[in-house]
Design a protein around this nucleic acid. Structure first.
Lengths: 120, 120
DNA sequence: CTGGATCCACGTAGATACTG
DNA sequence: CAGTATCTACGTGGATCCAG
């Protein structure tokens, strides 16, 4: 959880932040949103940098927040599928805004740093 | 910085995330946005839980990202004023979306946890 | 294949004291 | 009043091994 319940303006912003800042959560969510249901191993391939342990824990947290659904098939070998829940889809506006802003920000900072000097 | 430059869907989302997740950044931004220019000491009063050291460092990071402006008045005793830059205002859509979602999420989780049981 | 448990390294935040 | 420096404590992530 965050902190601060005394600043009405803020607290709910951090509620959202706390849920999506898991360092890998947003990328996992986006993968599942855009590429659909995926198995554990498939996610690992889609996100090569993430460790086994991290993928597990981040998926658990996302599941606890009802953002993704975990379906276990009682087979040997085990098979588990993850997908974004309907509720998880409600994060789209936030992720969209962040994507837009993040993209623009790269340009902003590039200009500030003198790169992109008028190249005409 | 984040990680991952191989997943086009994601990277720019984390660009934005990395900038606003400083644990105190969003609240500082919101205070400055809604209450206007504030001095260092005023911010401390508005956010009592933050430590002196943290306020300093978070303000510095926000400044480095062009989100806030720092104005030093060469007086004795020192006086420094912080305000949101025009560029910082572009974060409003994100903060708004997160605020809305965060608020709704509290309700969502309350229901999930069996609270709010139909009290008719 | 999926995932839990353990050990360890590192970053980040808190507390405190000091400076201009 | 505003800011810096140091020292410490803790959470979090990485690596590795074990299990169903």
């Amino acid at each position: 959880m965050s902190q601060n319940t005394k600043n009405p303006d803020n607290c709910n912003v951090n509620v959202a932040l706390d849920i999506i800042v898991g360092k890998w959560k947003s990328i996992i969510l986006l993968q599942l949103m855009f590429r659909g249901t995926k198995r554990f191993g498939e996610l690992r391939k889609l996100i090569p940098e993430i460790t086994h342990r991290m993928l597990t824990s981040q998926l658990r947290e996302l599941e606890e927040n009802d953002l993704i659904k975990r379906v276990v098939y009682p087979e040997i070998p085990p098979k588990v599928e993850y997908s974004v829940t309907e509720y998880g889809q409600t994060l789209m506006p936030i992720l969209n805004e962040m994507h837009k802003w993040g993209t623009a920000h790269q340009t902003h900072m590039a200009q500030k740093n003198g790169e992109l000097r008028n190249s005409l």
